[in-house]
Amino acid sequence: MVNLTINGLNVSVEEGTTLLEAAKFWGIPIPTLCHLDGLSPYGACRLCVVEIGEGPKASLVSSCTYPAEEGLKVRTASSRVIRARRMILELLLASCPQSKTIQDLAAAHGVCQQRFKQEYEDCILCGLCVRMCEEQMMAKAIGFRSRGENRSIGTPFDIKSDVCRLCGACMYVCPACQLRCTFNEPEKTICGSGQNLRPPCLEKEQFDDMMCYMDPCVACEIQKQNKQ
């Protein structure tokens, strides 16, 4: 067993436990986006950062990937952590405003505005779908491509994958891009599994400015862009 303190609480967990698992076990909430039980930890969204260590050596680490260490002092909601989390949520909102998951998280953290240039992306590259496809569906149909700002998820050369069974698991786990697989250009979809599900407003011209719970709705935005 490994002994550590989380928010001042002395706890002991089994060796090999991550900080996120330890905190969850002891009932301490940490927000996550790219974490899902059953999939290997990845540490991409950085939302689950916690502060470890003391004094000048204190640093933020992603709790989903950091293993519990003997004598570690963890703070899951210090001012430094909250500041970082709010900025991360602000960045997420600026890129993917249409995600209900992100909107809810932002609201829960009191982030009511974002100060960057608004973008309408449909993917935060959390990699849940990639890991789901590889680790649970044993397909490896999709993966990461390129790096930096050009990084994207998809199949090689955007060709429909032979190993994809159209199971839709990638859609199911997606926290942000609920509409990704129902994109109105079938050849650009990830695996094509959700092509039969189209957002209602796309079909109906008269609902041009229809606002669903997603504000702004990505489907409407795409349609507007296409018209221009």
Partner: peptide
């Protein structure tokens, strides 16, 4: 850096872009 970031961490990828 925005081109050379691997793009894994959201804050590095998006942060350098912003």
């Amino acid at each position: 850096l925005k081109d050379e970031s691997c793009g894994k961490c959201f804050t590095c990828r998006k942060g350098t872009q912003r």
